[in-house]
Computed example of a mutant assay.
Amino acid sequence: MVSPAVFLLMLFFVIPVVLTFALAFTNARLVSPVPAQFTGLQNFRTLLDDPEFYKSLRNTFYFAAVIVPLQGGLALVLALLVNAKIKGVNFFRTIYFIPVVTSMVVVSIMWTFLYQRTGLINHLISQLTFGHVHGPDWLNNPSTAMPAIILMSVWQGVGFHMIIWLAGLQTIPKDLYEAADIDGATRWVRFWYVTWPGLRATRTFVLITITIAAFGLFTQVNVMTQGGPLDSTSTVIYQALRTGYAQQQIGYASVISLAFFVLVLAVSLVQRFLTREKD
């Protein structure tokens, strides 16, 4: 009964992982008449001396460090707003969730047009400032390209984590809020001593899922900037795929993938340790 699942797991996870480890020690190319040769730790030494990898690593950490608290916090605020039992709240839940079910490729293309020098965003900036301020060419400026991708990514993904927060809010017993009201607690006190502790498991899940998704940034970069300008938006995943497919250096791309795997695993373990339940 479990054989179909085991077969798919072997095909799409176990075999690729084993191949990644094996190819990391070779000079394998994607298309080459020359057989791959064992090169030992040469690819790892190349990785340690690769300035592009370190730039991609910094960009990845920058994206994750900004988007994790921003998207998680905004999603919690939206969840608190739509958790109220008022007429029409389901409409707002639907509106906030629509970007989540829209393809990231479609969203990236749409926002690429919005970010153009003559796009809607710059037009709004010019109108709101009565023509005194003109927006930059967002995706072609190294100082604004990554913030632009962050803004778009938050808009697209905040609805999903809003639903997760909302599910967590609805598991908190109502008796705790009634007791807090009897004691005369303010809204902030109720949130800090009732809501926030009650979301312990939920915030651990939200934190880890946002972080893993942030480290896996690829689609937005591939569609909107192709890693530019001046590698200001290149990430570890984007560099690995560009190295493996565009440059056909499968061996070196495998090493980058292993570095990414270790990175995500380490960050996830640290987050899990920091958010563990303490006696």
Rank of each mutant, 00 (worst) to 15 (best):
L120A: 05
T102N: 03
G135Y: 02
Q127T: 15
L124H: 08
G119Q: 12
Q127M: 13
I109S: 05
M110F: 12
I125V: 15
S108P: 11
L120N: 09
T129G: 11
T112M: 12
V107F: 01
M104K: 07
G135V: 07
T118M: 09
I125G: 13
Q116I: 00
S108G: 06
Y115L: 07
L120Q: 01
L114C: 12
V101R: 01
I109T: 12
V105D: 08
H134N: 05
T112I: 05
I98A: 01
I109E: 08
F130C: 08
V101T: 10
G135D: 00
L124K: 05
I121A: 14
W111N: 09
I95C: 03
I98S: 00
L114Q: 06
V107T: 14
G135Q: 03
F113I: 03
H132P: 00
T102D: 05
T112D: 15
H123M: 09
M104Y: 00
G135P: 04
I95L: 15
S103K: 14
R117D: 07
S108R: 04
W111V: 06
H132I: 11
F113M: 06
I98Y: 07
Q116K: 13
G119T: 06
R117Y: 11
V100L: 06
I121L: 15
L124W: 15
F130I: 14
M104G: 10
W111H: 04
Y96T: 01
S126K: 11
L114E: 04
V101P: 01
M110H: 02
F130H: 15
I121K: 01
Q127Y: 01
H123R: 15
T118Q: 10
V107Y: 02
L120Y: 06
Y115A: 02
S108F: 04
L114F: 13
W111C: 06
G119E: 03
H123L: 08
L128K: 02
H132T: 15
Q116C: 09
Y115Q: 09
G131N: 14
Y115H: 04
H123E: 07
F130K: 14
I125Y: 12
P99S: 01
T102Y: 05
V100R: 00
V133E: 10
L124E: 11
G119K: 00
V106Y: 04
T118G: 07
F97M: 04
F113Q: 05
V107E: 02
V133C: 13
V106D: 08
F130A: 15
S103D: 05
I95F: 11
M110D: 10
S126F: 14
G131A: 11
Y96L: 07
I98H: 03
Q127G: 06
T129K: 08
P136A: 12
